[in-house]
Design a protein around this nucleic acid. Structure first.
Lengths: 225, 225
DNA sequence: GCATGTCACTTAACACTGTTAATTTACGTA
DNA sequence: TACGTAAATTAACAGTGTTAAGTGACATGC
């Protein structure tokens, strides 16, 4: 059995080598320049050899995208400590922005990619999907603020609110990446834009301080200092 | 000379036929499915024939997108009648969204394209660039609202405000296009998302009704009913 | 130790893609 | 009618993703 296991291990290693080289290729040549033959050359294989490790190009690209997502989630995790849910939400938004600015290539093919529509059918969705977790983090933060009665009374849908908030910061950075060099726009510094977006959305969606309930709606009757 | 003119006219007509067919092809098959040979077949030509009308595929696609964008600007123009500048701003935002949803390929090319940084060298920039105009429209609407004292006092930068607002609606639709099929997000209807985004941003950036100045700041002393 | 079979990989090929060069066809003009 | 130009064609190149068949290495059963 050790012989079989050794073979499996070797296969896993070449698979890993392919993914590693694929990540580099994607970083250097972008989606447009990525090809199976180029990738194969990087690992000294024929293009067809890759097909014994991945069903097709899209599946391979999907897996590469997943790996970038995992890096992203790691950055996102660090914002979980902040006590106030609205402050935490703001911080998460700025983390999203910072990730996009520091890893623009990863961001491009995670959030501005129009080629790979959905993630691969199998695999990703089963074991906890990192992107799913990111959205789930955002949503749970909002749900917490919602439970504390921080949002305006007509807004009670955590998914809707999470999507609005995410769209806001996403819009800032994706427009910056796509059209941030257009000479006919007097672009303001992108981080200032992001900050104002977060502030404006929070002000537009939450209750002002003097209208907040003393106790959150789901804990009425309990003491809260 | 009439014979030469006739020839030029015929050439212009086949050029037009190619663009017409190209528009249909782009609509049906999208960017991914668009090919020179398919297009040529639609107009009963060889693929290479197209190269005597357009320098290359990108130029052809660029011209097709420009045409879509002109349609978009036309729709954008129709929002100029609304008297209240904030209402007009909201309407412009929703027009932007509607364009992106109805012409996703044109939108991708214009606003989610990370390959072509600036617009084509020739043509677009010389005769008024539609994208430039759209931003200018948005900005002037905001400047008008700004002059009427509708924004919060600390917000006085029309460019900054225009960029925030544009980013908001852009974020909604671009995230919808890029990740709108992710199964782990309970996506709310995209138009509802857009509506709430516009409302939230306006609420977060403008003054509430009871804090608005009776007269706009630049017309203090004049009578206003 | 040798035959068997599986698995990783290569070769050959197919049907595409954008694009160029050379060639043919059509047409206005002298 | 001959000439020249312009618009179309054919042929070809280099590249793409992907499949089918073949090859060599290696673990397993007798």
């Amino acid at each position: 059995m050790t012989a079989l296991e050794a073979r499996e291990k070797r296969k896993a290693q070449t698979r890993e080598r392919i993914l590693e080289a694929g990540g580099q290729l994607l970083l250097n040549d972008g989606f447009h320049g990525f090809s199976m033959r180029k990738l194969a050359a990087k690992v000294n294989y024929t293009a067809t050899a890759i097909y014994s490790h991945f069903p097709d190009k899209d599946a391979l690209l999907g897996e590469l995208v997943e790996r970038e997502f995992i890096k992203f989630r790691r950055a996102f995790d660090l914002t979980s400590k902040i006590a106030d849910p609205i402050e935490r939400l703001a911080k998460k938004g700025m983390t999203f922005v910072e990730f996009a600015l520091q890893q623009p290539d990863a961001f491009k093919f995670l959030f501005m990619n129009t080629q790979i529509e959905a993630f691969p059918k199998v695999g990703l969705i089963e074991r906890g999907n990192p992107a799913q977790d990111c959205y789930a983090y955002l949503r749970s933060t909002i749900a917490e603020a919602l439970a504390a009665g921080r949002f305006r009374p007509e807004l009670s849908d955590a998914d809707m609110l999470a999507q609005i908030f995410m769209s806001g910061v996403h819009g800032i950075v994706s427009l910056h990446i796509a059209r941030g060099k257009d000479p006919w726009v007097k672009w303001r510094p992108v981080r200032q834009r992001a900050k104002l977006m977060v502030e404006a959305l929070i002000r537009g969606l939450t209750l002002p301080q003097d209208e907040r309930p003393e106790s959150p709606p789901d804990t009425i009757g309990t003491i809260r200092i």
